[in-house]
């Protein structure tokens, strides 16, 4: 029994565990070798889905079986392979599951860039076969080459966005109108200056026209005085002239005496602001004399002379 155990142990010792085996450097291929070791290694490719719209991604799965060193196997870089130029490739190692005994799985995301692509190309794969007996002159034969299968795919035209019913645009009421760009809305600054200076100019023009049509202030006064004085003297020379009424009319014309001012005190109040006190008193005295004559019923003729003297005094000093 113990002899049998010894024989078994001896037989297993002949086959070194894979991690103990030394992979020769001589004969190692320059490309398509990813550190895989085993006997009869197979590489199988799968894609999902096999029908993919242009610009969409598909999952590409590469399963390498019969490996002796699955943990040491490197992930083939598809980006480095010219056969995969027609694809955009995401080969992040985050996608890969952990190694399992005798097998290694690598996951890629591929995006076909053209509708003319019909298959995912084969991948050449060298591995180290420690059992293979080769001539010493051909050490490269210890690294046989296998291929993954090509995967047929169909690239569909780019998916169109779904046609949705049109959505109305809410337009606020004020936005339904546009400003008229040809309309001069703004109060122009020059218009303000035109009014500021133009109106006074017009006023000066008006005054000039008025002055040309009418005499100036001094002349108007003189004319007014002469005219009023002439009216008084003419009225007093008429028979039975009412000196009281004539003088009041003169005061209205000459000094703008209000029509309601008739009594001596009212006349005094009004003239007090514009005439000397002596003239005011003389005027009031004359009016009192008129009242006295009227109420006494005596001859009023002397009042005409007094009225003339009053008018002369007023015209001289006013």
């Amino acid at each position: 029994m113990s002899l049998l155990i010894l024989l078994v142990l001896f037989a297993r010792a002949d086959e070194e565990p894979p991690e103990k085996q030394r992979m020769p450097v001589i004969g190692r291929p320059a490309e398509h070798f990813y550190n895989a070791a085993g006997s009869g290694v197979t590489v199988m490719a799968e894609a999902s889905p096999t029908e993919v719209p242009l610009d969409d991604w598909l999952t590409f799965k590469l399963t390498i079986s019969k490996l002796l060193n699955p943990a040491d196997v490197e992930k083939p870089s598809l980006q480095a392979l010219p056969e995969f130029k027609g694809f955009q490739i995401n080969e992040s190692s985050d996608l890969d599951p952990p190694p399992s005994p005798g097998q290694r799985v690598f996951i890629y995301k591929l995006r076909p860039l053209s509708e003319s692509i019909e298959y995912i190309p084969q991948i050449a794969y060298h591995y180290y076969d420690h059992r293979k007996k080769v001539l010493e002159t051909r050490p490269q034969d210890k690294f046989p080459k296998t291929y993954s299968n090509a995967v047929t795919i169909q690239v569909l035209p780019r998916a169109l966005p779904p046609v949705l019913p049109p959505v109305p645009l809410v337009v606020p009421a004020y936005a339904r109108q546009l400003a008229n760009l040809n309309e001069a809305r703004a109060f122009r600054a020059w218009l303000g200056w035109l009014i500021f200076f133009g109106v006074p100019l017009l006023i000066f023009g008006w005054i000039a026209a008025w002055k040309s049509r009418y005499p100036d202030e001094a002349r108007l006064r003189q004319v007014k005085r002469h005219r009023a004085a002439r009216h008084v003297f003419a009225a007093l020379r008429r028979p039975a002239a009412d000196a009281h009424a004539v003088i009041l009319a003169y005061l209205e014309e000459r000094f703008d005496l209000p029509a309601g001012a008739r009594t001596p005190s009212e006349v005094t109040d009004y003239l007090g602001s514009s005439l000397a006190p002596a003239l005011v008193e003389q005027t009031a005295a004359f009016l009192r004399d008129c009242d006295a004559v009227r109420f006494a019923g005596t001859d009023p003729s002397p009042l005409a002379n007094e009225a003339e003297r009053l008018v002369v005094a007023l015209e001289d000093r006013a």
Binding site: P166, V167, L169, R176, L181
Partner: peptide
């Protein structure tokens, strides 16, 4: 631009086109 704006108003039933 005024014409384009008015065309936008006329097409306001379809927000994408009006925009």
């Amino acid at each position: 631009p005024d014409e384009l704006y008015k065309m936008g108003l006329a097409a306001s039933q379809d927000a994408a086109l009006a925009r």
